[in-house]
Design a protein around this nucleic acid. Structure first.
Length: 228
DNA sequence: GCGACAG
DNA sequence: ATCTTGTCGC
Protein backbone atom coordinates (compact mmCIF):
# COMPACT_ATOMS: atom_id res chain seq x y z
CA UNK A 1 0.00 0.00 0.00
CA UNK A 2 2.41 2.55 0.72
CA UNK A 3 4.58 4.23 -1.60
CA UNK A 4 4.61 7.55 0.05
CA UNK A 5 8.19 8.33 0.94
CA UNK A 6 8.53 8.83 4.65
CA UNK A 7 10.19 12.19 4.14
CA UNK A 8 7.08 13.50 2.44
CA UNK A 9 5.07 12.47 5.42
CA UNK A 10 7.42 14.19 7.81
CA UNK A 11 8.24 17.37 5.95
CA UNK A 12 5.00 18.25 4.30
CA UNK A 13 2.67 18.68 7.28
CA UNK A 14 4.58 21.53 8.88
CA UNK A 15 5.30 23.21 5.56
CA UNK A 16 1.78 22.67 4.36
CA UNK A 17 0.32 24.34 7.42
CA UNK A 18 2.64 27.31 7.03
CA UNK A 19 1.58 27.61 3.39
CA UNK A 20 -2.09 27.44 4.32
CA UNK A 21 -1.69 30.28 6.77
CA UNK A 22 -0.13 32.41 4.07
CA UNK A 23 -2.69 31.55 1.40
CA UNK A 24 -5.71 31.89 3.68
CA UNK A 25 -5.40 35.64 3.52
CA UNK A 26 -5.85 35.54 -0.23
CA UNK A 27 -9.12 33.63 -0.18
CA UNK A 28 -11.90 36.02 -1.18
CA UNK A 29 -15.20 35.61 0.60
CA UNK A 30 -17.28 38.23 -1.17
CA UNK A 31 -19.09 37.46 -4.42
CA UNK A 32 -17.02 38.03 -7.50
CA UNK A 33 -18.35 35.75 -10.14
CA UNK A 34 -19.21 36.30 -13.76
CA UNK A 35 -22.53 35.17 -15.22
CA UNK A 36 -22.57 31.40 -14.89
CA UNK A 37 -22.97 29.56 -18.17
CA UNK A 38 -21.04 26.49 -17.16
CA UNK A 39 -20.91 24.91 -13.74
CA UNK A 40 -18.43 22.18 -12.83
CA UNK A 41 -18.32 19.49 -10.17
CA UNK A 42 -15.04 18.01 -8.92
CA UNK A 43 -14.22 14.93 -6.90
CA UNK A 44 -11.30 12.62 -6.32
CA UNK A 45 -11.32 8.84 -6.14
CA UNK A 46 -8.61 6.21 -5.77
CA UNK A 47 -7.55 3.08 -7.58
CA UNK A 48 -5.27 0.18 -6.83
CA UNK A 49 -5.62 0.38 -3.10
CA UNK A 50 -4.84 4.07 -3.09
CA UNK A 51 -1.73 4.01 -5.26
CA UNK A 52 -3.45 5.96 -8.01
CA UNK A 53 -5.38 9.19 -7.50
CA UNK A 54 -8.22 9.68 -9.92
CA UNK A 55 -9.61 13.20 -10.41
CA UNK A 56 -12.94 13.72 -12.13
CA UNK A 57 -14.50 16.94 -13.42
CA UNK A 58 -17.97 17.17 -14.90
CA UNK A 59 -19.08 20.37 -16.66
CA UNK A 60 -22.76 21.21 -16.85
CA UNK A 61 -24.45 23.85 -18.98
CA UNK A 62 -26.70 25.96 -16.79
CA UNK A 63 -30.09 26.87 -18.28
CA UNK A 64 -32.14 29.04 -15.91
CA UNK A 65 -35.00 28.84 -18.36
CA UNK A 66 -36.04 25.22 -18.74
CA UNK A 67 -36.80 24.91 -15.06
CA UNK A 68 -33.17 25.04 -14.04
CA UNK A 69 -32.13 22.07 -16.10
CA UNK A 70 -28.56 21.11 -16.80
CA UNK A 71 -26.88 19.29 -19.59
CA UNK A 72 -23.55 17.54 -19.25
CA UNK A 73 -21.27 19.13 -21.80
CA UNK A 74 -17.93 17.59 -20.80
CA UNK A 75 -16.42 14.97 -18.55
CA UNK A 76 -12.74 14.53 -17.78
CA UNK A 77 -10.77 11.98 -15.76
CA UNK A 78 -7.14 12.44 -14.83
CA UNK A 79 -5.03 9.78 -13.09
CA UNK A 80 -1.66 10.13 -11.44
CA UNK A 81 0.34 8.48 -8.66
CA UNK A 82 -0.86 9.34 -5.17
CA UNK A 83 1.66 11.63 -3.53
CA UNK A 84 0.46 12.11 0.01
CA UNK A 85 -1.54 10.22 2.63
CA UNK A 86 -4.78 11.58 4.00
CA UNK A 87 -4.27 13.94 6.92
CA UNK A 88 -7.26 15.82 8.38
CA UNK A 89 -6.81 19.50 7.59
CA UNK A 90 -4.35 18.87 4.77
CA UNK A 91 -6.65 17.23 2.25
CA UNK A 92 -5.93 19.77 -0.47
CA UNK A 93 -2.28 18.73 -0.72
CA UNK A 94 -3.42 15.21 -1.48
CA UNK A 95 -6.19 16.06 -3.93
CA UNK A 96 -5.56 19.42 -5.59
CA UNK A 97 -2.60 18.33 -7.75
CA UNK A 98 -4.71 15.69 -9.48
CA UNK A 99 -7.66 18.07 -9.75
CA UNK A 100 -5.45 20.60 -11.52
CA UNK A 101 -4.38 17.90 -13.94
CA UNK A 102 -8.01 17.27 -14.79
CA UNK A 103 -8.70 20.96 -15.32
CA UNK A 104 -5.83 21.21 -17.75
CA UNK A 105 -7.55 18.67 -19.97
CA UNK A 106 -10.79 20.61 -19.85
CA UNK A 107 -11.93 22.38 -23.00
CA UNK A 108 -14.95 24.17 -21.59
CA UNK A 109 -14.01 26.55 -18.81
CA UNK A 110 -16.65 26.89 -16.04
CA UNK A 111 -17.46 30.12 -14.22
CA UNK A 112 -18.27 28.29 -10.98
CA UNK A 113 -16.98 25.07 -9.42
CA UNK A 114 -18.41 22.84 -6.68
CA UNK A 115 -15.86 20.74 -4.84
CA UNK A 116 -16.39 17.66 -2.70
CA UNK A 117 -14.98 18.87 0.61
CA UNK A 118 -14.86 22.00 2.74
CA UNK A 119 -14.28 25.58 1.63
CA UNK A 120 -13.48 27.97 4.46
CA UNK A 121 -15.06 25.62 7.01
CA UNK A 122 -11.53 24.59 7.86
CA UNK A 123 -9.23 25.17 10.87
CA UNK A 124 -7.22 27.74 8.92
CA UNK A 125 -10.11 28.75 6.64
CA UNK A 126 -8.66 27.19 3.52
CA UNK A 127 -10.11 23.77 2.80
CA UNK A 128 -9.72 21.92 -0.49
CA UNK A 129 -12.42 23.98 -2.24
CA UNK A 130 -10.79 27.27 -1.29
CA UNK A 131 -7.31 26.05 -2.16
CA UNK A 132 -8.41 24.83 -5.59
CA UNK A 133 -10.33 28.04 -6.27
CA UNK A 134 -7.31 30.11 -5.36
CA UNK A 135 -5.11 28.10 -7.68
CA UNK A 136 -7.56 28.18 -10.59
CA UNK A 137 -8.60 31.73 -9.79
CA UNK A 138 -12.21 30.64 -10.11
CA UNK A 139 -15.24 30.94 -7.82
CA UNK A 140 -15.65 27.70 -5.83
CA UNK A 141 -18.06 26.24 -3.29
CA UNK A 142 -17.30 23.46 -0.82
CA UNK A 143 -19.88 20.69 -0.51
CA UNK A 144 -18.91 18.15 2.16
CA UNK A 145 -20.74 15.12 3.43
CA UNK A 146 -19.50 15.53 6.99
CA UNK A 147 -18.02 18.07 9.40
CA UNK A 148 -14.36 18.96 9.78
CA UNK A 149 -14.67 21.74 12.35
CA UNK A 150 -17.20 24.14 13.79
CA UNK A 151 -20.40 23.81 15.84
CA UNK A 152 -24.01 23.71 14.71
CA UNK A 153 -27.54 22.85 15.64
CA UNK A 154 -29.82 20.39 13.88
CA UNK A 155 -31.28 21.91 10.71
CA UNK A 156 -35.03 21.75 10.06
CA UNK A 157 -36.60 18.67 8.40
CA UNK A 158 -37.47 20.20 5.04
CA UNK A 159 -35.28 20.27 1.97
CA UNK A 160 -33.55 23.64 1.99
CA UNK A 161 -33.60 24.10 5.76
CA UNK A 162 -30.23 24.98 7.19
CA UNK A 163 -28.42 26.17 10.29
CA UNK A 164 -25.19 28.14 10.51
CA UNK A 165 -21.88 26.42 11.12
CA UNK A 166 -19.90 28.57 13.53
CA UNK A 167 -16.40 28.35 14.94
CA UNK A 168 -14.32 30.19 17.48
CA UNK A 169 -16.17 33.30 18.50
CA UNK A 170 -19.82 32.35 18.08
CA UNK A 171 -20.08 35.21 15.64
CA UNK A 172 -17.90 33.68 12.97
CA UNK A 173 -20.10 31.82 10.51
CA UNK A 174 -17.99 29.56 8.31
CA UNK A 175 -20.68 27.61 6.52
CA UNK A 176 -24.15 26.10 6.51
CA UNK A 177 -25.45 22.70 7.53
CA UNK A 178 -28.04 22.10 4.83
CA UNK A 179 -30.83 19.55 4.67
CA UNK A 180 -30.58 18.59 1.01
CA UNK A 181 -33.13 15.78 1.27
CA UNK A 182 -35.86 14.91 3.72
CA UNK A 183 -34.84 12.34 6.31
CA UNK A 184 -31.20 12.34 5.28
CA UNK A 185 -28.12 13.58 7.11
CA UNK A 186 -27.44 17.19 6.13
CA UNK A 187 -24.51 18.30 3.96
CA UNK A 188 -21.96 20.99 4.82
CA UNK A 189 -21.82 23.94 2.46
CA UNK A 190 -19.13 26.59 2.73
CA UNK A 191 -17.71 29.36 0.54
CA UNK A 192 -14.61 28.27 -1.34
CA UNK A 193 -13.20 31.32 -3.11
CA UNK A 194 -14.84 34.45 -4.53
CA UNK A 195 -18.31 33.36 -3.32
CA UNK A 196 -20.25 34.47 -0.22
CA UNK A 197 -22.14 32.05 2.01
CA UNK A 198 -25.62 33.22 0.88
CA UNK A 199 -24.60 32.75 -2.74
CA UNK A 200 -23.07 29.36 -2.00
CA UNK A 201 -26.29 28.21 -0.36
CA UNK A 202 -28.34 29.50 -3.28
CA UNK A 203 -26.32 27.67 -5.86
CA UNK A 204 -26.20 24.40 -3.99
CA UNK A 205 -29.91 24.55 -3.32
CA UNK A 206 -30.80 25.21 -6.93
CA UNK A 207 -28.62 22.29 -8.02
CA UNK A 208 -30.44 19.82 -5.76
CA UNK A 209 -32.65 17.20 -7.38
CA UNK A 210 -33.76 13.95 -5.84
CA UNK A 211 -30.49 13.02 -4.20
CA UNK A 212 -28.52 14.12 -1.18
CA UNK A 213 -25.77 15.76 -3.21
CA UNK A 214 -26.20 18.61 -5.71
CA UNK A 215 -25.85 17.48 -9.35
CA UNK A 216 -22.33 18.79 -10.05
CA UNK A 217 -20.80 16.99 -7.09
CA UNK A 218 -22.98 13.91 -7.46
CA UNK A 219 -21.95 13.37 -11.07
CA UNK A 220 -18.28 14.00 -10.36
CA UNK A 221 -18.55 11.54 -7.48
CA UNK A 222 -19.78 8.77 -9.71
CA UNK A 223 -17.13 9.43 -12.31
CA UNK A 224 -14.35 9.54 -9.75
CA UNK A 225 -15.50 6.28 -8.20
CA UNK A 226 -16.00 4.82 -11.70
CA UNK A 227 -19.59 3.84 -11.09
CA UNK A 228 -22.55 5.12 -13.05
C1' DG B 1 -3.51 15.04 28.81
C1' DC B 2 -7.95 13.64 26.13
C1' DG B 3 -10.75 13.68 22.02
C1' DA B 4 -11.83 15.20 17.10
C1' DC B 5 -10.62 14.60 12.60
C1' DA B 6 -13.25 16.79 4.94
C1' DG B 7 -11.71 12.46 1.78
C1' DA C 1 -11.49 7.33 0.28
C1' DT C 2 -12.02 1.92 -0.10
C1' DC C 3 -13.41 -2.96 1.12
C1' DT C 4 -18.55 -5.31 0.50
C1' DT C 5 -24.53 -8.36 0.74
C1' DG C 6 -28.35 -7.87 1.81
C1' DT C 7 -31.99 -5.07 3.07
C1' DC C 8 -35.35 -1.28 4.49
C1' DG C 9 -38.13 2.41 2.37
C1' DC C 10 -40.41 5.56 -1.06
Amino acid sequence: MPHTPLHDWNLIPTEAIALQKRLAGRVERADRLDPVRHLAGVDIGFEQGGEITRAAVVVLAWSPNDGNEFEVVEQVVHREPTRMPYVPGLLSFREVPAALGAFEKLEVKPELVMVDGQGIAHPRRIGVASHLGLWLDLPTIGVAKSRLCGRHGEPGPERGDWTPLVDGSDTEVIGAVLRSRVKVKPIFVSPGHRVSLPTAIEWVTSCLRRTKLPEPTRLADRLASRRG
